[in-house]
Amino acid sequence: MSGAVSNLSLLEKISPFEKRDLLIAWFCLAVAFTLGISGGIAFVTDFTKISIDTLALTFVVAIITVGLSFVLHEMAHKFAAIRYGYWAEFRKNTQMLLLAVVIAVVTGIVFAAPGATLINTAGREMTKKENGIISLAGPAINLILAVPFFICMIAGILIGGAEVSQFTLPGFLFYLGMIGFQVNAMLAFFNMLPVGPLDGRKILRWNVVVFVVTIVVSLLLLYVSLQPWMFVKMLVYS
């Protein structure tokens, strides 16, 4: 099976069912994030203050940031598994996707477990190293993605100065970069937690040093990503 898989092109390794599930999960996550930006109906006292333009812009940003970060995270798991000769496909969790949208609408909190990349070992026993590296691929790609989004945020500040309105080019760059930076840092750190079926538990079983380094870097990036105005003050007012 390994030889047959290696002869397929990149897109051919993503089945029609997997493409469908990825697109559905991508869309639902973007909707959940967009609805969550309002703060949730439980905390909104005046619905007339919710701007349609802002929601539309947020949806575009969510499609690029949340969707892209999630898809590439799952694809990193998939292609790492394929590298070891296994077959892997993402499968959505419809109930969890619906729950994510409902929670976002009610509370304004985006918490989603949209599905998982399922690995078919074809009867082979996966080693701790293989499982660890396959698990590490997801958080690692999020840490890598955090860099261009951080650069995008900084570019918005340098171009626009203190002007951070979302409806200007500098403001859009800042907003896009800030959200992308935060989302990828959050995904990396959350998935590195050594609990349940999360990646961190499998990585810890494989290599303690790799686990500690990765989760510390994720935590530092998460902390920095949640202080975007610090960079505005540093670059504009210093």
Rank of each mutant, 00 (worst) to 15 (best):
E125Q: 14
E130C: 03
I109Q: 12
T45I: 06
F17D: 08
G138M: 08
I63M: 14
F150N: 01
P139S: 07
T45Q: 11
A116V: 13
L99A: 15
G67P: 06
G132D: 01
V105G: 02
N142I: 02
V61R: 01
D46V: 06
V61M: 03
L55C: 08
N93S: 14
N120G: 05
C28Y: 12
N93A: 13
F149Q: 04
N93F: 13
N120C: 05
V61Y: 00
S69L: 05
A80Y: 01
H77M: 10
L98H: 01
L97Q: 03
F59V: 00
K92P: 00
L23M: 15
A100T: 09
F33D: 10
D53Y: 13
L55M: 14
K92R: 14
N93R: 11
Y86V: 09
G108P: 10
L22Y: 10
E125V: 15
L99D: 00
S51L: 04
S135N: 12
L35Y: 11
A25H: 05
I119Y: 06
F70Y: 13
S38N: 10
V66Q: 03
A112Q: 04
M96W: 11
I82M: 12
A76S: 13
I24D: 00
F111L: 15
N131T: 14
M153F: 08
A32E: 04
E18L: 11
K92I: 09
R83P: 03
Y86G: 11
A100I: 01
G39R: 10
E18T: 03
M75H: 03
T121C: 09
F27K: 03
K128C: 00
F150Q: 02
R124I: 07
M126R: 09
R91S: 10
F149M: 05
I144A: 15
S135Y: 08
I41N: 05
G67T: 07
V61K: 03
I24E: 00
R20K: 15
A62S: 14
